[in-house]
Computed example of a mutant assay.
Amino acid sequence: MTTTLDAYPQTVRDAVAQARTSVSALHAELPRWGLVVWTAGNVSQRVVVDPAAGPGPDDLLVIKPSGVTYDELTPESMVVCDLGANLVDGTRAPSSDTAAHAYVYTHMPEVGGVVHTHSTYATAWAARAEPVPCVLTMMADEFGGPIPIGPFALIGDDSIGRGIVETLRESRSPAVLMRNHGPFTIGKDAKAAVKAAVMVEEVARTVHISRQLGEPLPIEQQHVDSLYARYQNVYGQH
């Protein structure tokens, strides 16, 4: 396939190479934490150029190719797309979720990374179309409240992306459980989105187990707000 990446300046090509390396390495975290099976799931990252190196693109992302097993992934196999989900550089077709990722980047400019998995417990909540209630301090820290449910949407166009954006614009959560599908997470970069994917599965599992013992106790909103503010603004800063 003829590449059009050569049309971009060297600073952009360097940023793409860095993103390919990062995204390839982060994909290994998904099977490591038991979040995916076979070729399901994907990580993407917005291409960002160091401001000191000059102006960069606002229209490129790096994502996993479609139908490739995790042990076959390399930086070179990652594909580059624009925010219209069109292939810019790569030897394979991009993930079938690329349009959803691209829609998120287009409409949430603060987002630098997107992750999708079919992790078991989080997907089980999605199958029930039930938000995960905020009954753990870990949830208050990371998600700032319950993990919301997004609408049902079919794969193949930007419908999933629209559902993600509509849901997360009204929530502090970096994760949404798309109904009958599974979790999508966002972050300032791909690493942060992978962390959110790991955390959403952990709390979905823990709250499920808690419900087998009885009704979990919700955390008062004032305490949720306090925990979230501390974790996001103070924890790890000193």
Rank of each mutant, 00 (worst) to 15 (best):
M1T: 00
M1A: 02
T2H: 11
D6A: 13
P9S: 05
R13G: 07
A15Q: 03
A17C: 07
S22D: 15
L26I: 02
L35T: 01
W38Q: 12
W38L: 15
T39Y: 07
T39V: 12
D50F: 01
P57R: 11
I63K: 10
P65E: 00
P65Q: 01
S66F: 00
S66R: 13
V68G: 00
T69R: 15
Y70G: 07
E72D: 12
E76L: 10
E76R: 04
V79D: 07
V80P: 10
L87W: 10
D89M: 03
G90E: 00
T91V: 14
P94H: 04
D97I: 02
A102E: 00
T120Q: 13
T120D: 11
A122C: 05
W125G: 03
A126V: 07
A127Q: 15
C134R: 06
V135T: 14
M139Y: 01
A140D: 03
E142R: 14
F143S: 01
I149G: 05
I149E: 02
P151L: 11
D157E: 13
D158C: 08
R162L: 05
R162E: 12
G163Y: 02
V165M: 04
V165E: 08
E170I: 01
E170Q: 14
S171M: 04
S171R: 12
S173F: 00
P174M: 08
L177T: 04
G182T: 04
P183C: 00
K188R: 14
A190L: 05
A190D: 04
A192T: 07
K195S: 14
A196N: 04
A197V: 05
V198E: 13
V198C: 12
V198Q: 13
E201A: 04
A204C: 01
T206G: 04
P218Q: 05
Q221P: 05
Q222Y: 13
H223S: 11
L227R: 14
L227Q: 13
Y228H: 15
A229N: 12
V234L: 09
V234P: 05
G236W: 08
